[in-house]
Amino acid sequence: MLGEVIIQKMKKIKFKVDKHILTPKHSKLSEKEKAQLFEKYHVTSKEMPKILRTDASLRELDAKPGDTIKITRKSPTAGESLFYRVVTDV
């Protein structure tokens, strides 16, 4: 029953969220990249900005809580800027 509901919800939004002009590119970091990132900035995942697991832009990434998402933003001041968020539940 629950599975059915989820499938219907995904079907309803057939367009790719990524392609919308407002949404920047999201990609998942590998474990190695994640460790490098945390070391570079001297942070733990607790101090990182968060993104909800249910976020619309993660629909096709299959992200689990604890994963780190790399966001490539288009910035008016820097051309392209990188941002990272950690996936959380609720």
Binding site: V17, L22, T23, D55, A56, S57, L58, R85
Partner: peptide, 8 residues
Amino acid sequence: EQVLGIEA
């Protein structure tokens, strides 16, 4: 936020 996500 609901439709396109937090970054949008």
